[in-house]
Write a protein that binds this DNA or RNA. Structure first.
Length: 435
DNA sequence: AACCCGTGGCC
DNA sequence: TGGCCAAGGGT
């Protein structure tokens, strides 16, 4: 639908925002009500027109919804995996991971029988790895406590590891048709605009207001379509920069009438991004590479990495690399190569990772370093990991690693692929190789 | 409530 | 480039 209404500049008067545009008026909002002030518009709440709103939304969704792999059969398993995968993850990435996941773990039983390392490897690159560990734990719980059948009642769904209020509601409504809302960031945005919620949406009282409206908007017997439609509208139309000209709910939207849709939702306070200077070192004996498996909890839980840590004040990255290796493994090492810097952005900090090649000092008996591998292991004291391994470049491919460490490993052990024109879509491994 | 947990795309 | 963001959950 073309943009038919003139875009309203910020600061336009409330009267100008609505005068002479009957097509944009709330249903039942007569011309005699003009001028539209914030008070008069709010008085005519969209809540008085819920059936019309519901129908407009469902009609729009029927036409404009994207074809997505989890919108085919709506099995609880697929709904669950897709919902967790898409948490904090962009749709396009989610699709490729989802397809690969379903190929590898087609059902709860297959998943429950899998090794965690394989699950994490498949998840590698998606981040928030506790999601993968929770999914596996939940699959095993479904086998143990629900006879392998995905539970259909909200309380049992909510009791699964990694399933919070959002995901429980999403599964219950989208897979089982329960009359519950799904309130994600998309829906927060849509509702905060329709009802002109003028305080930060993540906090009270806004969160409660939004949730109550969300519940009230769910039509009887159509929660699957409605909830997806709300999220789809937020993803495609009611985006950060709203496309009100294409919105099926524009006629119901208070903030649109007031010309302030782009000022909703009201954001919370922003996180401060702090720079972090860190190091990591690749220790090799012959063709073997030292890696360690991180603790189960905390950052990158159960993932493999090269040892390292922060650069302390007054310390050079080289010094930090040697010190961290001693602290984390007890190995006395020295720097033999500088592999440069990897920069990686996180939600709350920006990492500058200095990467070095290392070798052991004082090898066993003063002989060649190869003697350290198996027959004569180096004296090891792991302090920052649960497990270690002398691995090979080939095996490294099959260990789940954090993105920055994977980037380093690829730069060392994988030739950068020749200019590839194919849309690296088959597997993530291929995408990795063509980066 | 506030903070931690990852990542890559976008502009 | 860098700040912001995306179908949250756990503590």
């Amino acid at each position: 639908m073309p943009q038919t209404r003139k875009k309203l500049p910020n600061g336009v008067s409330k009267k100008d925002a609505s005068a002479g545009q009957p097509a944009s008026l709330l249903p039942g909002f007569e011309e005699s009500c003009l001028p539209a002030t914030a008070d008069t518009v709010r008085h005519l709440t969209p809540g008085d027109h819920i059936p019309g709103l519901q129908k407009a939304l469902l009609d729009w969704f029927a036409v404009h919804q994207r074809a997505l792999p989890w919108r085919v059969s709506y099995t609880p398993y697929e709904v669950w995996i897709s919902e967790v995968m898409l948490q904090q993850t962009q749709m396009e990435r989610g699709v490729s991971y989802f397809l690969r996941w379903m190929q590898r773990f087609p059902d709860v039983a297959t998943l429950a029988a899998a090794h965690e390392e394989d699950v994490l490897l498949l998840w590698e690159g998606l981040g928030y790895y506790s999601r993968a560990r929770h999914i596996l734990a939940a699959a095993r719980k479904i086998m143990a406590e629900h006879g392998g059948v995905f539970p259909s009642d909200l309380a049992s769904i909510r009791a699964l590891p990694g399933v919070g209020p959002y995901t429980a509601g999403a599964i219950a409504s989208i897979a089982f048709g329960e009359k519950l809302p799904c309130v994600d960031a998309n829906v927060e945005r849509v509702i905060s605009r329709i009802f002109d919620v003028d305080s930060p949406v993540k906090q009270e009282p806004a969160a409660g207001v939004i949730h109550r409206w969300a519940l009230k908007l769910v039509p009887e017997g159509k929660s699957r379509e409605h909830n997806q439609a709300m999220m789809e509208l937020g993803a495609l139309v009611c985006r950060k920069k709203p496309l009100c000209g294409a919105c099926p709910l524009a006629a119901f939207c208070i903030s649109h009438h007031l010309g302030i849709a782009d000022q909703r939702p009201v954001p919370g306070k922003r996180a401060v991004i702090k720079p972090v200077n860190a190091v990591t070192g690749v220790l090799r004996i012959g063709k073997n590479i030292f890696v360690q498996k991180r603790p189960p909890s905390g950052v990158w839980g159960n993932l493999w990495e090269f040892p390292g840590g922060r650069v302390e004040p007054g310390e050079s990255p080289e010094q930090a690399s040697v010190r961290e290796f001693m602290e984390e493994t007890g190995f006395e090492v020295r720097v033999t190569a500088n592999y440069g810097v990897i920069r990686h952005g996180y939600t709350t900090y920006r990492l500058t990772l200095h990467c070095f090649g290392l070798e052991l000092m004082n090898p066993c008996g003063g002989a060649e370093a190869e003697k350290y591998s198996e027959a004569c292991p180096p004296p090891l004291q792991l302090t920052a990991a649960q497990q270690y391994k002398w691995t090979t470049p080939e095996e490294l491919e099959n260990l789940a690693m954090p993105a920055a460490h994977r980037k380093l490993a690829d730069s060392l052990f994988n030739k950068p692929a020749a200019t590839s024109d194919e849309p690296a879509s088959a597997t993530v491994r291929q995408a990795r190789l063509t980066e």
